[in-house]
Design a protein around this nucleic acid. Sequence first.
DNA 1: TAAACTGTCCCGC
DNA 2: GCGGGACAGTTTA
Length: 147
Amino acid sequence: MAMKRGVCRFGLWRVHVSWSGDTVYRVLFSKTGEGGDVPPEFRLYFSGKPINFGRLNSTGTEEGSPFAEIYREVLKIPYGQTATYGDIADLTGTNPRMVGNAMKRNPTPIIIPCHRVVSKSGIGGFTPDVEIKKLLLAMENANKSGN
DNA sequence: TAAACTGTCCCGC
DNA sequence: GCGGGACAGTTTA
């Protein structure tokens, strides 16, 4: 199956998705770009629907990846809720620094909801821009309970 | 308030 | 192929 590439709008940002069928290979944020198809889950999610991406597979989460266990725990965080780096570190038997590292290396943000992992005393960080994280959390918080 | 701790990836040799 | 530095945090002194 040929890999497709599409762009979905999220506020001022554009979400570039490389995917094929029900597998997502890469999710990137930028301020430019348009056109192409993205999986329907993305359009629903960015339109404010409290959906999950359970149908979609994403690369980087398969066994063998050093961060697989961390990603697996992050995937369990429900829509509209957050966990701290320390929580994930505790669950996976590593340390918070490692969790932040794993989030940064995460090839498919949104699907792996790294924006739901926050610092114990703040929002933490986000690549390429923490502003995206703030927007995502605000959106989920506004829609999680029937709006 | 400052420093140690941690595991992995990336870059330079 | 190997070694040093960097990193989206937390805890302790």
